[in-house]
């Protein structure tokens, strides 16, 4: 009797496990709300912004319309986690290079030193030579506010830290509806690989 039941349970267990892994959609992060009198959920979205990119041209949310993008916060003179973050992010950039649906957006948190021309030089040295990966500069208060309130990434100036700043190495995945769909530790190759896969899942969701 027991022997006959074992295969059945094995099949069941495998089926249950398999169904767990096959999440067709990525979760939506952030607080949510419902407008009075309506039934649709209102998700947290990234608000409108305007920063200067590496070509000293204004870069706004309009430039990201209908696109999936990966956002992060860094500074060019950072010797701790930024190099490894961008090394990993570059592998994703290389994988989706030329794909008009995907963009990359790196914000500097060092407004004093990282002027756009410096960002341009940094981008070139990293091996980024097109507009698909934007490196943007903004006033300190604007960048810090959007990091902490909207992308949910902690950033802080700290004179006791090695390079004068402390910050988190999240790579944040944003969908075309401006919602956060994932956050990945950019210092870990496994998490970066997961981000690469999740971009494909998200593309499928928005494929028409």
């Amino acid at each position: 009797m027991i022997k006959r039941v074992i295969p059945f349970f094995t099949v069941l267990a495998v089926a249950v496990l398999a169904s767990c892994q096959q999440s067709a959609k990525l979760p939506v992060y952030g607080s949510r709300d419902v407008e009075p009198g309506k039934t649709d959920t209102i998700y947290k979205t990234i608000p409108a912004f305007s920063f200067l990119n590496q070509d000293s041209v204004a870069f706004t949310q309009e430039n990201l319309k209908g696109k999936i993008y990966v956002a992060d916060f860094f500074f060019t003179s950072c010797s701790s986690i930024c190099p490894v973050m961008h090394r990993n992010m570059k592998t994703i950039y290389d994988a989706y290079k030329g794909n008009p649906e995907i963009m990359f957006l790196s914000h500097t948190i060092d407004a004093k030193y990282d002027k756009p021309w410096r960002l341009k030089k940094y981008a070139q040295k990293l091996g980024v030579d097109d507009k698909q990966w934007q490196f943007v500069w903004g006033e300190k208060k604007d960048v810090y506010a959007i990091a902490e309130k909207d992308y949910l990434v902690a950033v802080q100036e700290d004179s006791t830290a090695r390079d004068g700043f402390i910050h988190q190495g999240w790579l944040v995945l944003i969908d075309p509806d401006k919602r956060i769909r994932g956050a990945y530790d950019g210092t870990l190759p496994e998490q970066t690989a997961k981000l690469k896969d999740d971009i494909a899942v998200l593309m499928k969701e928005y494929a028409k």
Partner: peptide
Amino acid sequence: CQNCHGANGEGLGQLA
């Protein structure tokens, strides 16, 4: 060293 110079000593673009 690995952050900049890489796990295989490959460096990082023209940065390191």
